[in-house]
Design a protein around this nucleic acid. Structure first.
Lengths: 210, 210
DNA sequence: AGCAGAGTGTAACCTTTGTTACTGAACGAA
DNA sequence: TTCGTTCAGTAACAAAGGTTACACTCTGCT
């Protein structure tokens, strides 16, 4: 495990901190499509992403969903993080976009390392800052873009985190993530295809204009 | 100044930390309608709100704006905060909603106190968490509410931070904050008035259904 | 009083997005 | 192969929100 840690967090953390994480952190593998949030909620620990990609969704009371952003290797989930700190129930949902490996850090180590390691302190603050920036970008997207632009951005983002210009997804799934209806997505996708930006197939879409 | 500090942050900070803030922090007064962000950007310091209220807006490249949330006494601006940390240019605009008093903390003290005072560490993390929660609420509002609901929420929020059920505002100003057009706001306001929820006057609106 | 400018009310119309309904194609299981 | 289910395409219509245009009313200034 220490090797995977070094590879992903070596440039961020001191060696002694890496050793500590290695000794207390537990390793989890999450298959694609599974939720991570229960883990973070239940066993009160903080996840560090080692490989894979995770999509973060906002959920309201009535079960409406909205994609906020994707997270990749080297990141942590600042939400889960702040949930742990505040002992509050999470307000978001995290779903593995690709098969994902995590290291779970017990929260009691959070505060301890905060005083002990300057690099940990920076990492936590930087993570908060990054997540904040991503939330702001999500707001821009919802507030300032029209649905067709949001859709195309979504497709490109999804292709990016999957490292593949062909994405496996149904129109219904996209509709959930963008909080709209399947018919609207089908309509706009067809337009994008006519404009030569994508190629539609059953259960998959190829992005041409990356 | 130490008295105002005690009043607003006493329950958060140790006495020794309050003394330090008192000795290094400089006191600023911002009249209603003025921007705070230049201050935070230029002299690289972090503002603590002592009195008044501030509205935080997102701005895109084309000058489009959108209200994110209001901040009140006892808060800090986590954006400015993270801007200071990251030495990056701010992506938001902060405007004094009411006359506002701030204490500006030099950023070099940020990291120093982070290791030195547990209460400061908690305060910074809690601030990040609070601002994150508020961003999420802003996303809910934009994504899940319709314009008439957003408008009524806006009016109530504004009445709240002004401690007054009569708010001084023009339809055009509301339109800017909600990123829509004046005509739409006038239309919806008239509907709200007919429903008995508000009373319209020139340059002001009385909120009846708090 | 007369005037200019800011603020508001309202109609008519357009665009975008959401909804309902129905179609057929693709796929997997029996 | 047949049948049921999921997925996608499309039309017709409804609703929300954005745009343009114009009228009228305050308010402050000269």
């Amino acid at each position: 495990m220490i090797n995977e840690l070094k590879e992903n967090y070596g440039y961020l953390f001191e060696d002694s901190l890496l050793m500590e994480i290695n000794s207390v952190g537990t390793f989890k593998e999450i298959p694609e499509g599974f939720q991570l949030i229960d883990i973070g909620n239940y066993i009160k620990s903080m996840p560090l992403l080692v490989s894979g990609a995770v999509k973060i969704l906002r959920e309201d009371d009535k079960g409406d969903e909205l994609l906020l952003y994707f997270i990749e290797r080297g990141d942590t989930c600042a939400m889960t993080l702040s949930c742990c700190m505040g002992q509050k129930k999470s307000e978001i949902r995290a779903v593995a976009e690709t098969p994902t490996k995590l290291i779970m850090i017990p929260i009691e180590k959070m505060g301890e390392w905060m005083g002990k390691y300057k690099s940990w302190q920076n990492f936590i603050l930087q993570s908060y800052h990054d997540r904040m920036t991503e939330l702001l970008e999500a707001i821009d997207t919802i507030a300032f873009l029209k649905m067709d632009e949001r859709l195309f951005k979504y497709l490109k983002d999804k292709a990016m985190v999957n490292h593949n210009d062909v994405i496996q997804v149904t129109h219904q799934e996209i509709a959930f993530d963008l909080h709209t209806s399947r018919v609207v997505i089908s309509r706009l996708l067809k337009t994008l295809e006519n404009e030569g930006k994508i190629k539609l197939h059953r259960n998959s879409i190829k992005i041409l204009d990356i």
